[in-house]
Design a protein around this nucleic acid. Structure first.
Lengths: 343, 343
DNA sequence: CTGTTAGCGCTTTCAG
DNA sequence: CTGAAAGCGCTAACAG
């Protein structure tokens, strides 16, 4: 009899009327409240079905003070960030755990710190995963004091749950590997030397070298600019600054390594015979590069997974570690030689 | 004097009290209502500032019936979908236009059609972008009848605004290119032959071949399975089914093309001298492959951008085209030869 | 077991 | 120009 409501969605009140119960009963049926007669519940559920009723997440959220949305904020001054394969992997890991928890993913790539603070205080999300280290300290400080649970991914800040990669350790690993491969004249190339992660990698590299009595001369460290061929330019600089070319170069990341490799070859040097080359990231391309690139891999998915589960933990009121450091793994392919072969 | 509220956020009422006005006035100030004295507005805004007040998007949404959230649903039975570089590009395009419109992106990779319908009717989003063709017709039918504006990306359905790639046209382009390069014995390899897009590509390929009086024998069409080496397996099948190997093969996508290439080489055939090979997608790897892969490119970002702006248009009450077909572009690299060279 | 009622925080008539 | 009050759809006391 009753005409089917086409447009404006049915509300809990419509269902109540249809099932001849009070709205509280409908709510109870929907929330699996134990104190409800099975027959009544069935009737209510049937009414929901025929009316095509679905709870408004807005009204529910307003009442409960929660949305089941988790914000993923990726700070970047550069263009759409999902395109960065690194972030894509991290997000994949996040998604993996949020899906199991039936949370929704609200993704924003933000340019300004204010946008982040707004997202944090609008009530649009129950918690925030902030990815990347491109966010100002004072913004982080405000975030720390916010009511909203926040976890930092690939960034650390005192007072905020943080999950990071051991960039310093990666640098040490690189140093030891290049040393073991017989390297004696070292270099470090990067797109820039401001990125805190790059600096940490460089720091670790230096420390491993020093332990072995080697070192990195100032001319052997270069930045080539944040573009496609930053590594290329950096490598050229090193090559022209040094009297003798290096025989072991560590690049701050895989793209830099690949483009540095071109510079090395243009100079007539062979890889890995004349110079060993090592990147960081293990991007997908690395394995398919010619020659396959030696690199230091880290678990990007795991970064996302860990961050997400820590956030979920905080939302559930659990204690979670303030700082989690994820280890890296050396992947020797064909731009460097393992120590064994060199002996 | 008043202690700063640390936890539970300030509400519009707190601001009203602080600014000694009514809550309606606060609301007006926040919404840039013209009918408000500049002095009052300033006072209210100042109060917001000192209290660190931000409107609850939930309450606002409940009242206004809108959330400023746009859902992006990616249907896939397989694992986290953001990892698929194709989707990542599409999402990048979507993000690009939604960001300008100050909309938030709610991303869900869904396995079941029901999840999609739930997302569509919970009121969590104002509109829905459904990406990919892995969604059941009856689900689409329900979506069509929903109150929520929906646009399909890389999928078409009668009655729903759709944005697609001209897969058939891509197949035709492939056929003509391979023909022009001197091909005479053609083959088509894919991971599967069920995917509607793959079928459309095959259909276009066939039609171009037929126009030229050529054709594709049944043994020259093979699927190798949805795995890493589906193209490899498919190519092997073709190679062993045919008395004479083909000299021009069209792969349903780039990964299939790359892995088919391995099979061709294992058979001792050279590319492109003995056999020309062409993929579809122009994935990032294609240009960096050895040899660089000829392929048919399409504007994945544009797909996302177009879909998103159509959705925005619908939300704004504008008319938008029911179906938009995006053209593809042939990219000749080193696994095939352009017609000129062959003559 | 079930119904009535009071808000969650906001926007928006409707009166001043 | 500003305030009081109603109500968006839901959940959670509180009574029956």
């Amino acid at each position: 009899m009753a005409a089917v409501r086409r447009s404006s969605r049915a509300t809990i009140r419509d269902v109540a009327r249809h099932a001849r119960v009070g709205i509280a009963t409908v709510s109870r049926a929907l929330n699996d409240d134990p104190g409800i007669a099975p027959a009544t519940r069935a009737r209510v559920l049937a009414a929901c079905e025929t009316l095509g009723f679905r709870r408004s997440s807005l009204a529910r959220g307003l009442k409960l003070g929660a949305t089941d949305n988790i914000g993923v904020a990726i700070m970047s001054r550069h263009a759409p960030v999902i395109l960065n394969p690194f972030y894509a992997e991290v997000i994949g890991g996040i998604e993996e755990v949020l899906e199991d928890a039936a949370k929704h993913l609200l993704i924003s790539s933000l340019k300004r710190g204010d946008d982040l603070l707004e997202l944090a205080s609008e009530g649009r999300v129950d918690g925030l995963l902030v990815v990347g280290c491109d966010v100002a300290p004072q913004v982080l400080a405000q975030l720390r004091d916010a009511a909203l649970p926040v976890v930092l991914i690939d960034n650390a800040f005192d007072g905020i749950t943080s999950v990071v990669i051991d960039h310093h350790g990666a640098g040490r690993q690189a140093g030891r590997h290049l040393l073991a491969g017989g390297g004696t004249r070292f270099a470090f190339v990067a797109e820039n030397l401001e990125n805190p992660n790059f600096r940490a990698r460089l720091g670790g590299f230096r420390s491993a070298l020093q332990e072995a009595g080697s070192q990195l001369s100032p001319e052997a460290v270069a930045a080539g600019g944040d573009s496609w061929d930053g590594g290329f330019v950096a490598m050229q600089r090193v090559l022209s600054a040094l009297a003798t070319p290096p025989d072991a170069v560590f690049a701050a990341n895989d793209p830099a390594a690949m483009s540095a490799l071109r510079a090395v070859r243009e100079r007539g040097l062979r890889v890995p015979d004349d110079v060993a080359l090592l990147g960081v990231d293990d991007i997908h391309l690395a394995a398919h590069h010619v020659p396959p690139l030696s690199t230091i891999a880290f678990d990007k998915r795991g970064l996302g997974r860990t961050g997400a589960s820590h956030l979920l933990g905080r939302l559930a009121g659990h204690d979670v570690p303030a700082l989690t450091v994820l280890a890296t793994e050396l992947v020797v392919r064909e731009t460097s030689r393992s120590g064994d072969g060199a002996r």
